[in-house]
C-alpha cells in the first residue's frame, strides 16, 4: 500500500477560497456572488481584492442563481457561493431552468456538504445534492477531497465551458494531494494499485478509503483505491479497468446511498461488468448534530465501515 502523508489538516472550503482569489488575479471574467456567507465560503479575500467583481446577494439564493445566469450573457464566469443545501435543494428549479436548461456557464460552489459540517444538524446537512445535480442534463458534478485538490478544481472549472456543481466542506481534513496539481475534470485518480478489491471514493471519504486500504493491507488484502472527484461525467474507463482486475467494488461517499456516486458506478457495472458491490453511504435517513468524526462513525462512513464493506464484498466474490 502506497504511503500517504500530510503536514497539516486544512478545510476544503479554504481551498476554494484560495482558488477563487487566484482566478480573480488571472481571469478578469471571473465574478463571484455570495448569499451572506462570505466568511463561511472563504470568499472574503476575493471580495476584498476585487470589490467590483464581487456581488453580495443577501439571503436570497434563488435570486443569486438567476443573477449568475444573467451575468454569463456578456461573457462573465460567475461563481456562486453558499452552503450545499442552499446551493441545490433550495434553488433546484432556478438551476434547472435558468442555468442548466439555458446552458449557462455558472459555477455553483457549495460548502458544508454532507454530514461533516457537524453541529448545525440535519437542516444544513444535505445528503441529496449529488443526486439532484447529476440528474440535470449538462451539469458537471465534482466533489473534492482536500485543500489542494479543491483549489485545483476551482481553477479548472473556470476553464470548463458549461454549468458545474463543485462540492466541498467545512471540517479540516488531511491535505495530502500535491500542491499545484493539475485537475482534470472527469479523470479519476488512482491512489493505490491493488488486485483484490476496488474502492471508489469521493470527497472527504477519500482519506478514509486510504486509511482503510492501509488496514486491509495489514490483513493481506490488496485494495485498489481510486479518487472519483468527478461524479459526472464519470470516468467509466477507469472504473471498468480497475474492476476487470479486482472483480468487486466498494463505493464510498458522504451522501445518501440513493442517487449518489454508488448508483452511478452501479449503472456502469450493470451494463458492462456486473460484479459484487457494497455501498458506504448514508442510509435513507437525515443526519443530526455532532462532531464530524462521531457522525461519520454513527452513519457508517468511517474507515471501519469501508474495511468491513471491503471484507463483505470479498466474501461475495468467492
Amino acid at each position: 500500500m502506497k504511503k500517504y502523508t500530510y503536514t497539516e489538516k486544512k478545510d476544503t472550503r479554504s481551498g476554494f477560497g484560495a482558488g477563487l482569489l487566484e482566478l480573480g488575479k488571472n481571469n478578469p471574467n471571473v465574478v463571484a456572488l455570495c448569499a451572506d456567507l462570505t466568511g463561511s465560503l472563504k470568499m472574503g479575500d476575493f471580495a476584498k481584492a476585487f470589490p467590483e467583481r464581487f456581488f453580495q446577494v443577501g439571503i436570497a439564493e434563488a435570486n443569486m442563481m438567476g443573477i449568475a445566469a444573467g451575468m454569463t450573457i456578456g461573457g462573465k464566469i460567475p461563481f456562486t457561493g453558499t452552503f450545499a443545501n442552499f446551493s441545490t435543494a433550495r434553488v433546484f428549479d432556478q438551476i434547472r431552468q435558468s442555468i442548466a436548461y439555458s446552458g449557462k456557464n455558472v459555477k455553483i460552489c457549495a460548502s458544508h456538504s454532507g454530514l461533516t459540517l457537524g453541529e448545525d444538524g440535519a437542516t444544513h446537512q444535505t445528503l441529496e445534492d449529488i443526486g439532484m445535480m447529476k440528474m440535470l442534463p449538462g451539469m458537471t458534478v465534482i466533489n473534492t477531497c482536500d485543500f489542494n485538490q479543491t483549489k485545483a478544481a476551482t481553477l479548472a472549472i473556470a476553464e470548463w465551458e458549461g454549468p458545474v456543481y463543485l462540492r466541498f466542506g467545512r471540517p479540516k481534513v488531511p491535505n495530502f494531494t500535491p500542491e499545484n496539481q493539475k485537475f482534470e475534470i472527469g479523470k479519476a485518480v488512482v491512489l493505490n494499485e491493488g488486485s483484490d478489491v476496488s474502492i471508489f471514493a469521493t470527497g472527504h471519504l477519500v482519506w478514509e478509503a486510504i486509511q482503510a486500504g492501509e488496514r486491509l493491507a495489514e490483513e493481506g488484502i490488496s485494495a485498489e483505491i481510486i479518487n472519483i472527484h468527478t461524479i459526472k461525467p464519470l470516468d467509466e474507463a477507469a472504473i471498468l479497468e480497475s474492476v476487470a482486475k479486482t472483480k468487486c467494488v466498494v463505493s464510498a461517499e458522504e451522501h445518501s446511498r440513493l442517487g449518489g456516486l454508488g448508483d452511478s458506478i452501479a449503472q456502469v457495472l450493470m451494463k458492462h461488468n456486473p460484479v459484487p458491490m457494497e455501498y458506504v453511504a448514508v442510509n435513507d435517513t437525515f443526519g443530526e448534530s455532532g462532531k464530524p468524526d462521531e457522525l461519520l462513525k454513527k452513519y457508517g462512513l468511517d474507515t471501519d465501515n469501508i474495511v468491513e464493506a471491503a471484507k463483505r464484498v470479498l466474501k461475495r466474490k468467492m
Partner: peptide, 27 residues
C-alpha cells in the same frame, strides 16, 4: 432567446444579472 422561461418568477433576476454585466463591460 437568451434564457429559458416558463417556470415563473426567474426572469427578473436574469435580466438584472445581464444588466450588471453590461455595466462591468462598460456597455
Amino acid at each position: 432567446v437568451r434564457v429559458a422561461s416558463g417556470s415563473l418568477g426567474q426572469g427578473l433576476s436574469v435580466a438584472i444579472g445581464a444588466a450588471q454585466t453590461k455595466k462591468m463591460n462598460n456597455d
